[in-house]
């Protein structure tokens, strides 16, 4: 626990948790008092804080962008509710950028479906007879086994 007034050295250790709101109320108050009285630490705080805010902003934007993409991707799979569908279609009508994104997702879908379909279209596996025979043999084997068991019980 820190006692008395905080030194500038203490502050450099506490600045990040202070910005990140990871301090107790008591600690927070003491950092604030120091910052109010020390222009040097205040300047340092301002620089770090503005960097921190920029990163935070970027992360929020990135997350928002992904949320939007995710919704669009589900929309292209026809996996959104009617309500959401209407909202997305309204947004698509208004935004070229969004429309471009949707087109790109659909192009990817088309490309994959085209390759998947043509690639396996002419492959013949013909495994069904073998599988059924194996299953029948398996069943016969089981029956024999239970019969042997019964037989053993009888004698």
């Amino acid at each position: 626990m820190l006692k008395g007034n905080l030194t500038c050295e203490n502050i450099s250790r506490l600045i990040l948790p202070y910005i990140d709101d990871k301090l107790t109320e008591n600690q927070r108050n003491r950092v604030a008092i120091h910052l109010r009285n020390c222009p040097f630490c205040m300047e340092k705080y301002r620089i770090i804080k503005s960097l921190f805010d920029k990163i935070k902003q970027k992360n929020i934007q990135r997350a928002k962008k992904f949320q939007q993409y995710k919704l669009l991707s589900a929309y292209c799979d026809n996996e959104v509710s009617e309500n959401t569908k209407d909202n997305i279609e309204a947004s698509l009508a208004l935004s070229c950028e969004l429309t471009q994104k949707a087109i790109k997702i659909n192009n990817l879908k088309k490309l994959m479906n085209y390759v998947f379909e043509s690639q396996f279209a002419n492959i013949e596996l013909n495994m069904e007879k073998d599988i059924i025979n194996r299953l029948k043999n398996d069943n016969i084997f089981k029956k024999i086994k239970t019969k042997i068991k019964k037989f053993k019980l009888h004698f």
């Binding site: 992904f66 993409y69 995710k70 991707s73 589900a74 799979d77 996996e79 790109k104 997702i105 990817l108």
Partner: peptide
């Protein structure tokens, strides 16, 4: 599932 498909698509694109 929604997230995974979207992430997969972003990478594939």
């Amino acid at each position: 599932v929604k997230s995974r498909i979207a992430r997969a698509r972003l990478k594939l694109q």
